[in-house]
């Protein structure tokens, strides 16, 4: 096995039980690898298996067959604790709905990710503020999530995901709830972080606006890889 790959999927199949002993196969024999600093996306119609694949890579779920290696760890073999640890340290999630904890301030939401890593207070505060600066929201630090806009909320979610400097960022339709202007702003921020921190990004999206930023586009259909295309080679090299 080539351990250079940050993510390596071999014959990954995911079946969901649908009652009566029958199964629905959401992913069929997926073979993909992702490397450090990639900026890739999964596209495809609804139900094609994008979220299922992201959840497996994020160790929130495991494959029924095949092998999913993430940062050298076999997802299927991780205990609850180990998979939580993997997410905690190495994986950042961004969701369609910018899920912030409503009782905590913007700053505390970002800080929370580091709290889970038992990082000391002064270092935590410094890193959280820095992450907010990356997304340009240092001025909103003390606001509660219900007092900021949707675009700002998604930027806070990005700051929270990136503050721990994960190796992998998984973004499931991050722009679906945003207008064009905010969507572009978010994508520019993410692309910038990708360059600056060498983080591997993996999106799931329907959104043309997202696709135009991707360096690699993987089309899924009925749980299978239909196309795997390096799109923005020039962009990536620049």
């Amino acid at each position: 096995m080539d351990s250079e790959h940050i993510i390596q999927l071999e014959h990954v199949t995911k079946k969901f039980p649908v009652g009566d002993g029958r199964h629905f196969t959401a992913l069929k024999d997926i073979n993909l690898t992702f490397d450090k600093a990639e900026f890739a996306g999964l596209v495809g119609p609804s139900g094609s298996g994008k979220t299922t694949l992201l959840n497996i890579i994020g160790s929130l779920d495991s494959p029924t067959e095949g092998k999913a290696m993430v940062l050298g760890k076999n997802i299927a073999e991780l205990s609850h604790k180990e998979s939580a640890h993997l997410r905690n340290i190495h994986i950042g999630f961004i969701f369609q709905v910018y899920n912030l904890l409503p009782v905590y301030t913007v700053f505390e939401n970002v800080e929370f990710a580091l709290l889970l890593q038992n990082i000391g207070e002064s270092e935590r505060k410094k890193a959280a503020m820095e992450a907010l600066e990356w997304v340009g929201l240092q001025d909103l630090a003390d606001k509660k999530p219900d007092k900021i806009s949707g675009g700002e909320g998604q930027r806070v979610a990005i700051a929270r995901a990136i503050v721990k400097r994960p190796s992998i960022m998984l973004a499931d339709e991050p722009t679906a709830n945003l207008d064009a202007k905010n969507a572009h702003q978010i994508m520019k921020i993410l692309k910038g972080l990708n360059k600056e921190l060498d983080t591997t990004f993996l999106f799931s999206t329907h959104d043309e606006k997202v696709m135009q930023y991707l360096d690699r586009t993987i089309s899924l259909r009925d749980g299978k890889v239909e196309k795997d295309k390096t799109t923005n080679e020039s962009n990536k090299l620049s």
Binding site: G58, L60, H80, K81, S83, A84, H85, L86, R87, N88, I89, I91, F93, F95, N99, L100, L101, P102, F112, A113, L116, Q117, R160
Partner: peptide, 13 residues
């Protein structure tokens, strides 16, 4: 909230 925390790397335990 629990979902967010799971994603952030807390084990359900």
């Amino acid at each position: 909230e629990f979902g967010i925390r799971l994603a952030l790397g807390e084990a359900k335990g």
